[in-house]
């Protein structure tokens, strides 16, 4: 009986092949829902600062005058809180994750210079 169970397990393992993912050779396993890193469509950003205000980890800096949106990738916890608050829906989570490194990565995005249209709406305090 025991030997039968064991033989079956061995057979199953022979047919199925290894369970282990061959990670560095095969791509990492992600799903469409995976929150990997935060990305911004900087063209749509109005620099309102709501994401900065609500970030639980204080990873985001927004500078309205210089039109920059900065994220400290080594502080961001990818919770998706800012994505919910963004009034222009220009923030989204990408599936791939930030690569480990020897130095903290701080990504800065600079928005295009606005055309004659005055910059302001959507800046109410939360």
């Amino acid at each position: 009986m025991k030997a039968g169970v064991m033989a079956l397990t061995v057979l199953k393992n022979l047919i199925k092949g290894p369970y282990t993912s061959r990670y560095p050779y095969a791509p990492a396993k992600v799903s469409p829902a995976t929150r990997g890193y935060l990305d911004v469509t900087i063209e749509d950003c109005i620099f309102c600062g709501l994401c900065r205000m609500h970030c639980p980890a204080d990873a985001i800096e927004v500078n309205k005058t210089e039109r920059t949106w900065t994220i400290n990738r080594f502080r961001c916890v990818i919770c998706g809180c800012c994505v919910d608050y963004c009034p222009k829906k220009c923030l989204h989570c990408e599936q791939s994750y930030t690569v480990p490194g020897t130095e903290p990565v701080i990504a800065q995005y600079t928005g295009p210079v606005p055309e004659e249209k005055p910059v302001q709406p959507g800046e109410s305090s939360a």
């Binding site: 990670y23 560095p24 990492a28 396993k29 990738r73 080594f74 961001c76 916890v77 990818i78 919770c79 994750y97 930030t98 690569v99 480990p100 490194g101 020897t102 130095e103 903290p104 990565v105």
Partner: peptide, 24 residues
């Protein structure tokens, strides 16, 4: 020497981090 980001860090990231650590 090596920082592995992520909350929580994914196992793939950790493997990458350890591989980088080996270079160091």
């Amino acid at each position: 020497d090596i920082y592995v980001p992520g909350c929580a860090a994914r196992p793939e990231s950790i493997i990458d981090g350890i591989v980088q650590a080996l270079g160091v």
